[in-house]
Amino acid sequence: MNLLVIIFSGIAILYLIVTGWITKKLSKFKFSKQKLNLEDELTNFSLLVSFRNEADRLPYLLQSISEIDYSLDKFEIILVDDHSSDMSRTEMNDLVNKFNVNIHLFHLSDVGLSTKKHAVKYGVNQASGEYILTTDADCILPIGILKAHHLQIIDQQPDLIAGAVSFIKKNTFLSQFQYYDFMAIQAVSMSCMIQGQPIANNAAHMSFKRSAFLESDPYKKNLNIASGDDVFLLEKFIQMKLKIRYLEFSEVVLSASQESFSALINQRKRWFLKSKHVKNRTAKRLGLILFLGQLNMIFGFILLFFLNQIELIFSFYIIAKFVIDYRLLNEFSKKFHLGFCAKELLLFYIVYPFSLFIFIFAVLNKDYSWKSRQFKF
Rank of each mutant, 00 (worst) to 15 (best):
1 M>A: 06
1 M>G: 09
6 I>R: 05
13 I>H: 05
13 I>G: 03
14 L>K: 02
14 L>H: 07
15 Y>M: 02
18 V>A: 11
18 V>E: 12
19 T>L: 15
21 W>H: 02
22 I>H: 07
26 L>Q: 12
35 K>A: 13
41 E>K: 14
44 N>F: 14
54 E>G: 05
56 D>P: 00
61 L>F: 00
64 S>P: 04
64 S>E: 09
65 I>L: 09
73 D>H: 14
73 D>F: 03
74 K>S: 09
75 F>P: 06
75 F>A: 07
79 L>W: 08
81 D>P: 08
81 D>C: 00
85 S>Y: 11
85 S>A: 15
90 T>W: 04
98 K>F: 04
104 H>I: 01
106 F>M: 08
111 V>S: 06
120 V>F: 15
120 V>Y: 15
120 V>S: 08
122 Y>S: 04
127 A>G: 03
130 E>G: 14
134 T>Y: 07
135 T>I: 05
136 D>E: 13
137 A>M: 08
139 C>D: 10
141 L>V: 11
142 P>T: 08
143 I>S: 14
152 Q>G: 00
158 P>F: 07
162 A>Y: 01
162 A>W: 09
163 G>C: 06
169 K>V: 06
172 T>S: 12
173 F>R: 03
175 S>C: 07
177 F>D: 04
181 D>P: 07
181 D>N: 10
182 F>S: 06
184 A>I: 01
188 V>K: 03
189 S>H: 00
195 Q>W: 00
195 Q>T: 07
195 Q>G: 00
205 H>E: 01
206 M>W: 02
207 S>N: 04
210 R>G: 05
212 A>V: 09
213 F>G: 00
214 L>W: 00
221 K>C: 01
222 N>M: 00
223 L>A: 10
224 N>I: 06
227 S>Q: 13
228 G>T: 02
231 V>W: 00
238 I>V: 11
241 K>Q: 14
244 I>R: 03
244 I>M: 07
246 Y>F: 15
246 Y>R: 09
250 S>A: 14
253 V>Q: 05
254 L>I: 03
256 A>H: 13
259 E>V: 04
261 F>T: 05
261 F>S: 07
265 I>D: 08
267 Q>M: 13
271 W>H: 05
271 W>N: 11
272 F>I: 04
275 S>Y: 13
282 T>F: 14
284 K>T: 10
285 R>A: 13
285 R>Q: 12
285 R>L: 15
286 L>M: 08
291 F>V: 05
293 G>Q: 06
295 L>K: 09
296 N>H: 12
298 I>V: 15
300 G>A: 01
303 L>W: 05
304 L>E: 04
304 L>N: 11
305 F>V: 13
308 N>R: 10
308 N>V: 09
308 N>M: 09
308 N>S: 14
309 Q>T: 15
313 I>C: 05
313 I>P: 06
315 S>H: 11
316 F>K: 06
317 Y>D: 10
319 I>A: 14
320 A>L: 11
322 F>W: 01
326 Y>T: 08
328 L>R: 03
331 E>D: 15
334 K>F: 02
337 H>Q: 12
337 H>R: 13
339 G>S: 14
340 F>D: 03
348 F>H: 07
349 Y>N: 03
350 I>H: 03
351 V>E: 00
352 Y>L: 12
352 Y>W: 11
354 F>C: 11
355 S>P: 07
363 V>D: 15
364 L>T: 05
367 D>L: 07
367 D>A: 14
367 D>G: 09
369 S>D: 12
370 W>L: 12
373 R>N: 13
373 R>I: 01
373 R>G: 00
377 F>S: 11
